[in-house]
């Protein structure tokens, strides 16, 4: 087996929406692979198909060598899933949640107890293990949920937005756990819409937008493809955006130009020396600039380049989309 995960043309259609469209990815053993995209891009649907929770409409996928439809049970034995929403039983203690999980996965008494202690200390919840889960904070819930996904020592671990809604400190903590796991050889698929998370953690990143994979590569290559620097302009009057954008496009000195609601970004080589020219072009067109910034390309810029939208711009409308699809799925 060469790949921990391999999909070919996997697609999921809900009545009128295509949530995941013709996705082909191969993930190597031991890789930490990121699925990056705004809310509602199809990340969770893809994870659901790979973890056998949702049957694909067409195409196929193999996880740890097993077909996700035909050998669903073998796939389940090989994977751990940490869901985006909390799926712990808050009427039980942390330890009881882990214990029931271990039993469901067929772990015998001694091994089960030992693994529970192991994962509890990994996520630093040993002290609180015997408290009811309903007394846990958001970060503790998330940590316990990760711990639970590890008890049965899965070959492949799916982490669906593991740090969603957590404070930066807890997030950094969870990143540490994730790094520890990859050192132990666990293949990890992580979805996130935090760019710095993907940048910081992942060996490779797939940008997924509107159900399709836009690009797959290492964060480093993705960024370097944009050239050396990114110049971002904020305009006084956002009505001028289209006009100025056309000017820069036409001029052709930037390897890419993109725009959001009130900003224009362009990737250039040797950014410091390009700033005067950028400002001159705007001045000649009579367009006033509010601010200029120069930075090294981040995944934000990569995302903007490939999708034509900033990931933060999409959040709001996509969130509404998500709520629609949620009430949709509840109806069925």
């Amino acid at each position: 087996m060469l790949h921990a995960i391999e999909t070919s043309g996997i697609t999921k259609k809900f009545s009128e929406v295509t949530a995941v469209n013709n996705v082909n990815i191969s993930i190597k053993q031991g890789e930490l692979f990121g699925l990056l995209g705004p809310n509602g891009a199809g990340k969770t649907t893809l994870i659901n198909m790979l973890s056998t929770m949702t049957v694909p409409s067409s195409g196929s996928a193999r996880v740890w060598g097993f077909d996700v439809v035909a050998d669903a049970s073998l796939v389940r034995q090989s994977i751990g899933v940490v869901f985006q929403d909390i799926t712990l039983d808050d009427r039980l203690t942390g330890r009881e949640n882990l214990d029931l999980h271990g039993r469901l996965y067929g772990l015998g008494g001694r091994i089960r107890k030992q693994r529970i202690e192991e994962v509890l200390s990994l996520v630093e919840l040993t002290d609180r293990a015997d408290s009811l889960v309903k007394t846990y904070s958001g970060g503790m819930l998330r940590r316990l949920q990760i711990a639970r996904g590890l008890i049965h020592r899965p070959h492949v671990l799916f982490l669906d937005e593991p740090t969603l809604g957590l404070d930066p400190q807890t997030r950094a903590h969870i990143w540490e756990y994730i790094m520890t796991l990859t050192k132990e050889g666990v293949t990890i698929v992580l979805t996130t819409h935090y760019l710095e998370e993907a940048d910081h953690l992942c060996n490779r990143v797939a940008i997924i937008d509107r159900g399709e994979i836009v690009v797959i590569d290492t964060p480093k290559t993705l960024k370097s493809r944009l050239g050396g620097d990114v110049i971002t302009l904020e305009l006084e009057d956002s009505a001028d955006i289209a006009r100025l954008y056309a000017i820069y496009e036409h001029d052709g000195f930037a390897t890419m130009v993109s725009r959001s609601s009130n900003e224009i970004s362009m990737a250039v080589r040797d950014g410091e020396s390009k700033i005067p020219r950028v400002l001159n072009l705007a001045y000649n067109a009579g367009i006033s600039i509010h601010s200029v910034s120069l930075h090294k390309p981040a995944l934000d810029d990569v995302f903007l380049y490939h999708t034509g939208r900033a990931i933060k711009d999409t959040d709001n409308s996509e969130l509404q989309g998500l709520m629609r699809s949620r009430s949709h799925s509840m109806r069925r």
Binding site: R76, V81, T87, Y105
Partner: peptide, 13 residues
């Protein structure tokens, strides 16, 4: 509703 069932149903049993 609370997601607990999802966790149970994904177990290989």
């Amino acid at each position: 509703e609370s997601g607990i069932l999802k966790e149970v149903l994904i177990a290989p049993v």
